[in-house]
Nucleic acid binder design. Structure first.
Lengths: 131, 131
DNA sequence: ACTAAAAACCATCACGTTATAGTTTTGGAG
DNA sequence: CTCCAAAACTATAACGTGATGGTTTTTAGT
């Protein structure tokens, strides 16, 4: 379920007009219903809070826009990373399948050969996950 | 001499904000000084009056914009016509020069040959000039 | 006539406001 | 439960407003 402007306004503690304005200048995005009503998703609440913080820190909405664009870019990077990780996972599971077809001796030597790499990969993944 | 926003506002009997707004949405044009002040020329007064009339007649500013665009297009047409007339004048004066090099008999027959055309041209020009 | 400082102007931002017109929700009548 | 009208909500237009930060003009003193 998405939020109508009034609901979002209440939840984010700003006026409708502010949301209207932000939407017009591209700080917020909204889907439009067939009757042209705007529908915001819940992430807009946090986005509005973030904007308020930035404003409180003395930034102009234009500055905030840049910040948000950076953040969005990071978000996209994250998505990217996620995709890459998914790809890696697939590769790894493929390797696992290969391993299952090996005999014990081959298996052990192979495991040794890649143990370093997999370890450091796991460590990096842990860094990403923690916090 | 051009008008600053306050001067135009007073002369046209609207607020500065209105002029600001109209300028932003492209209803009015302004030159900018090096310090970014807007400078309007006197025709803006009449333009503003026109806009007020249109609004009074129930038109939206968007409608007014269209009307003004038409008017501006006509203006351009007029400029075009003026140019053409200037061109014609040149042609005519060339003909006059030619005539001056003719003898009387040739001259008379020539005059007869073109009298119809020049008469109707003159009449059309008169139509353009009057009121 | 020259200058410094106040007064008057101007631009832009970030909403606020009022009016108009369409949409959705809701409380009751049947 | 259904239908419908009032109440609540929404979109957009066309400025209004107050704050902030420059620019120009005016004015008063030297």
């Amino acid at each position: 379920m998405k939020l109508k402007i009034g609901e979002l306004a209440e939840k984010a503690n700003v006026t409708r007009r502010t949301i209207d304005y932000y939407t017009n200048i591209g700080l917020l995005q909204a889907e439009r219903s067939p009757s042209n009503y705007r529908y915001y998703d819940y992430s807009a609440i946090e986005r509005l809070n973030f904007i308020e913080e930035c404003k409180h820190a003395g930034l102009s909405l234009d500055d905030v826009k840049k910040k948000l664009n950076e953040r969005d870019a990071e978000e996209i990077d994250v998505l990217d990373l996620r995709l890459k990780i998914k790809g890696l996972e697939k590769e790894v599971s493929n390797v696992v399948v290969q391993l299952e077809n090996k005999n014990n001796i081959e298996l052990k030597s192979l495991r040794k050969k890649i143990s370093n790499e997999s370890l450091s990969l796991i460590q990096t993944l842990l860094l990403l996950i923690k916090d």
